[in-house]
Computed example of a mutant assay.
Amino acid sequence: MKAFTAYTITAEHAGLSVETYLKQVLQLSGRKLQKLTRQKGIRLGNKPTFLTRPLKNGDILRILTLEDSGYGVEPESGALSILFEDEDVLVVDKPPYQLVHPAGRTTHGTVANHLAFEFSQRGILCTIRPLHRLDRDTSGCLLFAKNAQSQTRLETQLKERRLKRSYQALVETAPQPPAGTIDAAIGEHPSQPNRRAISPKGDAAVTHYQTRQNYASGALLELELETGRTHQIRVHLAHIGSPLLGDGMYGKRSPLLSRQALHAYSIRFFQPSSGEEICVEAPLPNDFLRAINALEKDSI
């Protein structure tokens, strides 16, 4: 009997076509996709489905279990900071100015390329499976599954909100009130395709925030995501009048650092095999620390 691995589609990936989900989220190569198609190994529920079909939140996509035959990306030597690793998962400290995986014209120099090289040096053949995304300029904890079964279980945790991602951010203006929840749907920007905007027709988005330190010209916040929309924290903070420091897209650029001041400082999840709760933290990068130091001096 053929074995299938089930993937529950989360709101984060709703709207993607089956083909896009397989290529971008599961990191399946075109060759593996062709093999699955020939073997009728792609099913929505228990029925074969078309690659062009859009996925909905809660859909169960069943994929014929194949042994990993490649990394899904080209291995490339490069710096890689591993914060935690076991037989099922790996957490990387992503530096700013680096993409998670190849996209658009960028085919090299991503975290995925460097992780594939790391595995190749160890003699491990493992498809690169990021569980979530971080913007190019956002630093911090990035979680990968090392096998299909772990990915399925971690995606279930993400859907059930048992996988927690916490961030630290510097904002231009201290929010009022100093702690709260931003519950505002996010959709596509009406005129700029690379941006997102608050929209009643968008996808539900919830961000919890708390002010940790006030400065004369800004504040340090701690945030936790309940959902994972594209640019969620950036859009939500701009929406309440506290845009991220250095965010030229939703606020304005800053002389204190050359990117938005957002860092994924911790991730909490349950080990896919044992169920043990794991919390991993990433230290603040140097440019973020320098910006904090400048804000503190300005407040004296």
Rank of each mutant, 00 (worst) to 15 (best):
V89C: 11
Y209Q: 12
T127K: 09
Q34M: 05
S217G: 08
K32Y: 04
V89G: 02
A291G: 11
Q192A: 03
G123A: 08
H101L: 06
G58P: 10
G70E: 15
V25S: 01
G218Y: 05
S120N: 08
R259F: 03
A185H: 14
F4A: 07
G251V: 07
V171K: 10
F269D: 00
G41H: 02
G41Y: 03
T8R: 15
S242T: 05
K297E: 13
T10H: 07
C126W: 00
R31W: 02
Y21C: 02
K159P: 00
P96A: 15
V100T: 12
H13M: 03
G104A: 03
P95Y: 11
Q213T: 15
I63V: 15
N46L: 12
Q39H: 07
S273D: 14
N46T: 13
L115Y: 08
S273V: 14
P177F: 08
I9M: 03
R253F: 01
G70W: 06
I186L: 12
A197G: 02
P285K: 12
K47G: 05
Q24N: 02
H108Q: 15
T181R: 13
V92W: 07
T8F: 09
H189M: 09
L83G: 01
T5H: 07
L220Y: 09
L262K: 14
R62T: 09
R153V: 14
F119A: 05
P177E: 12
D247F: 00
K35M: 05
V171S: 04
L28N: 05
E224C: 06
Y265T: 13
D137A: 10
I9V: 14
G251E: 10
A174I: 13
P102D: 06
A6H: 15
